[in-house]
Design a protein around this nucleic acid. Structure first.
Lengths: 400, 400
DNA sequence: CCGAATTAGTCTATGTTGTGGACTAAATAT
DNA sequence: ATATTTAGTCCACAACATAGACTAATTCGG
């Protein structure tokens, strides 16, 4: 709901605006900040001063040369004060990333495991150890970790931090957020959504796209005008269960002919004739494709066609500017991208001037963890005042 | 892009907040406004004073009795000062509505024609005459018409007011907005989108739903948290071309097996064995259904099934809270609603706790025109200051 | 019927924030 | 060395919201 704007909200908003502009431009002088924000030099000076005090930006010692006149002092986002933790709990790996406010990745911890074979609490315990170690290392270098984001493979209740139903893990109603108990605020969110945000902030930098996450299941995250679209209940983006053939093969979800049956990871293994859960990762499939194995190539064609069909429905419904293929589709892209684009193009060509371009993700399996960390950093940029209060609270404990 | 907040923006925002709260509550005293907005009584008094001066709200002479203490003066949105024009140009009719700021419909003009048989400029001329007559009548009763909205059956470039491609009219690149030339600002938008907004503001009042508009073509408008979702290019909601059967019957759009082939209006006429373009409206079909004609009932079942399949894809992708069936599906609802809900339920039951409920539109063919007018009124509520400046400019011409 | 209590709304002094223009600082051009 | 130009700061001021005193209008209790 819309809220009343008081002086403090005005200030918070302008502070956020300045910080955001500094970030998008890399670095800016106060004078150019005044120009881009429309605020006066005076106001910008005051706001920048506060951001400097809070440690959110730093003055680049270097002065910008160029034309005539006194050179300005450039200001840029500080990566040495504030950071966030990005976590991913997936079917076959755990990942932890520490990312600073300047969006540099400061620490990467990854652990390959098979979480389908373990109890939820054991898996969460593993992730917790990893995360606490990362936290300790980060704080050791003087970074203040202001929060954590966690990506999980399935729909989530963002409010409670509870996993609703992660069929690929076999988990139901697991309160991961609470169980992790890291001592910092934690936000849990669907893996595909966070991977989409990862791509937005750390990848191609485009602001409008549909990210397709191919894993055991298939999810999608829709980014429109730089914001994630979550739907009414937060379950948007279940691309894996979009209809390809209404009377097609039975899907785990109860319906028939869902995309997942044609283009999920297991569909590829089925095509190989063996299905041993983790005997082969996606690399085994890529290897076969590189050797020109006909059965695997045929599986790719079929998956690509199905993906094209499902995406054409998706495009008709949500009109994304671009399609970004991630997860297993990134390594498979050379064999699958063409078919996808062709199928889509064939179905959409007449209705629109052109079908959206199909691109490949740049981040690979890191996308979701980065998105998770980025989401926390976004809250800092959205309200720097709230953070700097917390920062000062910490430095000046209540006098007694 | 985020904008800097100055004092005037703060004021504008709070003014809007107060007006919006008055509208959602019907009527409110200054004291209760202070409570719901979080602003102080002083501030609310000043803001209400300005809204009164601008004529956007009126004091209800009646004082609210009840408990003890001095009774407050209730304030409600004034319907006597500001109004908007809602226009719809559709395949088989033209509609004009005048709606005041209190959302009361003040005037209805409808004209049944066959616009497929006429030149675009002739049709626009007809609509223009109708609109100008409505404008004159409205201004005659002292209403100030601050803008117009126009609904057209097809994707639109909202910026330029140009119809891109309306296949059902056979129009391409027609600058309707400019051609109408009504002397008030005009916003052109897709019919399904405006019908969805009409349903939001004048119908059921729900804030999260997918509105399905069944006409010659099938469109959809997605409303999330009270806002229309338009996609990256504004072409979202093309439900009619969502895949039902990837190798199904050829569609006008170039693809195969689109929903429109199963559940568009023409699909029903095809089932009847005759297709004479306008010999029979939807009423003919309803009549046959009421007499239990087996072929027509079968067509309904097929259409309902296809709609259920397409909607299950849509639900997986955009997660609407509710489905609202409008257009021809409103009169057909008794015969089609059940099949739709069953098909959807069957495909979605396991993945979600429950499939979204399927409801019927309350507005019928008026939805789009009302949404078009409502959209204009929304801009007034969003920034009452801008309007009241224009109002005062008009009353006090620049002194010389 | 009158005073106390209660609630609505206005008025005045004050605080916070951004503005505008004068001012100082630091560079280049001549 | 001086004029010009641009960056950044300082100070008086304007716009807006706030806090609390004040006035207004009602009900309750005797």
């Amino acid at each position: 709901m819309a809220q009343a704007v008081r002086h403090d909200a005005m200030r918070a908003r302008n502070l956020s605006l300045v910080l955001r502009e500094v970030r998008t431009h890399g670095s800016l002088t106060r004078a150019s900040l005044a120009e881009v924000t429309g605020l006066t030099k005076t106001t910008v000076s005051k706001l920048v001063g506060d951001l400097l005090d809070a440690g959110l930006v730093v003055e680049a010692g270097a002065v910008r040369a160029g034309e005539r006149g006194r050179p300005g002092v450039e200001v840029r986002v500080s990566g040495d004060r504030v950071a966030a933790l990005g976590l991913e709990l997936n079917v076959d790996y755990l990942a932890v990333r520490v990312v600073d406010l300047a969006r540099r990745v400061r620490l990467r911890l990854t652990q390959t495991v098979d979480n389908r074979l373990s109890e939820p609490l054991d898996v969460i315990g593993d992730l917790r150890r990893l995360a606490l170690s990362a936290l300790a290392q980060a704080e050791g270098t003087g970074l203040r970790v202001v929060g954590a984001g966690l990506a999980v493979p399935g729909p989530v209740d963002v409010e409670s931090g509870e996993i609703h139903n992660a069929p690929n893990l076999g988990w139901r109603n697991v309160p991961v957020g609470a169980a992790l108990d890291l001592g910092v605020p934690i936000r849990v969110e669907n893996e595909a959504n966070l991977a989409a945000l990862g791509e937005l902030w750390f990848g191609v930098g485009r602001a409008d796209f549909l990210y397709v996450s191919g894993e055991i299941g298939i999810g999608a995250g829709l980014v429109v005008n730089g914001a994630l679209f979550r739907g009414a209940r937060g379950f948007a983006g279940e691309l894996g269960h979009v209809v390809v053939t209404p009377e097609g093969p039975q899907c785990r979800c109860g319906a028939r002919g869902c995309l997942e049956q044609y283009a999920g990871q297991d569909a590829f293994f089925d095509a190989l004739g063996d299905r041993g859960p983790y005997a082969h990762g996606i690399d085994a499939i890529v290897a076969r494709l590189e050797h020109g194995d006909p059965a695997t190539l045929a599986a790719c064609d079929k998956a690509g066609w199905a993906l094209g069909v499902a995406l054409s429905s998706a495009i008709n419904l949500v009109d994304p500017h671009t399609i970004v293929l991630g997860g297993i589709y990134a390594p498979l892209f050379p064999w699958i991208g063409g078919v996808v684009a062709e199928t889509m193009g064939g179905r959409l060509a007449q209705l629109r001037a052109q079908a959206p371009p199909v691109e490949v993700s740049r981040l690979g399996s890191e996308a979701a963890a980065l998105g998770a960390a980025g989401q926390v950093l976004e809250t800092v940029v959205a309200d720097p005042a709230a953070l700097s209060e917390r920062l000062t609270d910490r430095r000046d404990p209540a006098p007694r």
